[in-house]
């Protein structure tokens, strides 16, 4: 699997969430994604970007376009140095929220992705990686 292109973006404010949506959309279009696939990965990106800011205290997003043989994909890696997630299984449950949201961010983003992984260390931060393939 090859990484064709990549860029890193800061995640600090709700304006950054809008910029992330636009950047992910541009990469998905460049990778030849259908309109539905574009919409799914942009929506997933919006959910996790907001989580990184609201719960992780901000962080960074790495966007990469991947090539696996003839397949193209987009991989997003969100990293923060926040408090971490004590119970990842619980955090991935529909309707569970530690904040004031609907509790659909993580679980919904996972459903919208082909690959999804969370690693978290209490007191050190969280990394969420998701990918969608054409």
């Amino acid at each position: 699997m090859l990484i064709e292109t990549g860029e890193t973006m800061p995640l600090r404010t709700s304006d950054d969430v809008v910029r992330v949506r636009q950047a992910v959309r541009a990469r998905a279009v460049a990778a030849g994604f259908s309109l539905v696939d574009q919409t799914k990965i942009v929506t997933a990106a919006s959910e996790i970007a907001r989580n990184t800011i609201d719960y992780g205290g901000g962080g960074v997003l790495r966007i990469e376009v991947l090539r696996d043989g003839r397949r193209l994909g987009v991989r997003l890696t969100f990293t923060d140095q926040g408090p971490g997630i004590p119970d990842i299984a619980l955090a991935l449950t529909d309707g569970y929220t530690s904040g004031g949201g609907l509790g659909l961010g993580l679980s919904g983003a996972k459903r919208l992705s082909n690959e999804f992984a969370i690693t978290s260390s209490l007191g050190h931060g969280t990394t969420v990686t998701l990918a969608r393939w054409k």
Binding site: L35, V36, T39, T43, E47, L104, G108, R111, L112
Partner: peptide, 14 residues
């Protein structure tokens, strides 16, 4: 609502 948005919303769980 655009069709792609509707499809995505339902899969998101909303």
């Amino acid at each position: 609502m655009r069709p792609a948005v509707a499809i995505t919303l339902v899969e998101l769980g909303l």
